[in-house]
Amino acid sequence: MRTIEAQQITDTVARLCMEANYHLGVDMLAAFDHALKTERSPAGREVLSMLKENARIARTERLPYCQDTGFVICFADVGQDLHINGGLLEDAINAGVRGGYTQGYLRASIVEGPFRRKNTGDNTPAVVHTQLVPGDRLCLRLMAKGGGCENRSQFKMCTPAEGLEGAKAFVLDCIQNAGPDACPPLIAGVGIGGTFEKAALLSKRALFRDIGTPNPDAELATLEHDLLNEANTLGIGPQGYGGDTTAFAIHINTYPCHIASLPVAVTIECHAHRHRQAIL
């Protein structure tokens, strides 16, 4: 059995929080460049250039890309043969969030309860999803999830009769409804199948795949491609000022489901798509 120290997890999470907020992924920068070539709307192109410049300033000055530095969502895949010494995994992650957000001059955006809306002051707690996996490693996938876009995420329990067409229509509906509010160009993480909560988790995990890489499942890859094309005919465009670039990507994960059900969850993510991972 391998052992790692909780402190190592804390230090790693702190670093990932800061990196995610200052450094937009190269896949996103490539998506900006690609869209700049295809976007017809002058206003849309101007927005895309501003976003590129925004990413450059954030990276070089260690200034957050967006002032909403997000709710930290952490997927922790824990090898069954790994032992964590010196504290609980979730505590270690939260200590990392506290450290990263304080030292990194990131915004504290979490309130202690849905009705008692007092800011916790250090952006804790994170939302932690733990899963046991083979091996003796710990894989931490961390996302700083914006509130404006998360507010547009939706779930629908479709019926088996609605099928593929029903699921597609719902995804497009979500993008249409998100409109300018969720800071397009968007990324939609889609979870189809499982149960109510499983679909939601699948939709979040789907966001960790690099933009521009095809779904490993050929059928889903085609579905993603078709949905993306349709989303980009909606006309919403960058920031909703009108244009062809409403979404950068649609990523789908599926799971077996009950004979009675067809759950579809759509996580709406904005262009401030900030995530990082580390394997310990």
Partner: peptide, 13 residues
């Protein structure tokens, strides 16, 4: 008025 959402670093300038 709209300002570019998500361009927080740039707009701070």
């Amino acid at each position: 008025f709209g300002a570019v959402g998500g361009a927080g670093a740039l707009l701070s300038k």
